[in-house]
Design a protein around this nucleic acid. Structure first.
Length: 289
DNA sequence: CAAGAATCCTGAATGC
DNA sequence: TGCATTCAGGATTCTT
């Protein structure tokens, strides 16, 4: 599942293609991708990419922002979310078409960018007028966990007043941008915090550990070029290796790498949680330091 | 407004 | 072998 490290790898791989030739044609499948306010009318709007030249590729949380330029016009932006199973690829226009291809952007140098997404949880949107940062969903995102200034103090402030459990708080993109279930569970293991701990029970020292563990987990994910469980690939088709480095995610019933205790997996809400019972003990009605 | 549940989707894995 | 069921989960919408 693409989370921040996977999206960052896609960003870096996309940059390496140095796409600069103008868009000659756009093809969009009939099938709907992500729906909702932020993505509505995207099918028609994406056609307006014609004539624009691609430039930088930025990332915010799990969103990719491909910048486009055109003479004497303000910057435009193609917003991409990979959802659960999405990936982008750059290839020559005569390459065989994969199933579940939903967007093809043809460039003047005979190359093509494709967005493929079997489960269709991903989303695509083009804004011919820039300022994408100021509009939903980008404007609603919490701080970037890899930025300087992302501290336990900031995280605690973002979560202030929440009565939810820490696992759910960290999954909330308005609190912090880019974490998904995999990296949240890895971070909480690293921090020694039970995923079901009420956020309101955490002391400053615990918030600090969680913030540090979160950035650490994400950085290691990037170092290992992302987690490839099934679908994830970067824009060159390269898979990651971080799935081999995971300490808890997907490892319920296995022995903890550190203490040998049997990792405990259970359903929290509609998602799987995993923890080490020895290193992430249950705390009830007490402060967690 | 906040929190939790339901929703969207397909392919892989599992069960009988 | 084959068919039906379960599971995976990000963000949004709906319900309480």
């Amino acid at each position: 599942m693409p989370e921040l490290p996977e999206v960052e790898m896609v960003r870096r791989s996309l940059r390496r293609f140095r796409l600069r030739a103008p868009v000659t044609r756009v093809w969009r499948s009939r099938l709907a991708l992500r729906t909702g306010e932020a993505w509505s009318r995207s099918k028609e709007r994406v056609q307006r990419l014609k004539g624009w030249r691609p430039g930088e590729v930025d990332r915010r949380g799990k969103y990719l922002m491909m910048r486009f330029h055109r003479e004497e016009m303000a910057e435009s932006c193609l917003l991409l979310h990979l959802g659960m199973s999405g990936h982008v690829e750059v290839c020559h226009a005569n390459e065989a078409l994969e199933d579940h291809t939903h967007l093809r952007i043809f460039f003047d140098d005979d190359r093509e960018l494709r967005f493929v997404d079997p489960r269709r949880f991903g989303g695509v949107r083009f804004d011919a007028r820039g300022r994408i940062e100021g509009s939903h969903p980008i404007s609603s995102l919490g701080p970037e966990p890899l930025d300087r200034g992302f501290t336990g103090l900031l995280l605690a402030a973002q979560a202030k007043g929440s009565r939810r459990v820490i696992r759910d708080v960290l999954l909330d993109q308005r609190v912090v941008a880019g974490l998904g279930n995999i990296y949240v569970l890895e971070a909480l293991y690293e921090a020694g915090i039970h995923p079901a701990t009420k956020a309101s029970r955490l002391r400053a020292s615990a918030w600090e550990r969680i913030a540090t563990a979160s950035t650490g987990a994400l950085r290691r994910g990037i170092e290992n070029k992302g987690t490839t469980l099934q679908d994830y690939r970067d824009a060159s088709g390269a898979t990651g290796t971080h799935q081999h480095a995971l300490r808890v995610y997907g490892r319920g019933g296995d022995a903890c790498d550190r203490c040998g205790a049997t990792l405990d997996a259970w359903m929290m809400g509609n998602r799987t949680a995993v923890r080490c019972p020895a290193e992430q003990p249950v705390v009830r009605g007490r402060w967690v330091s």
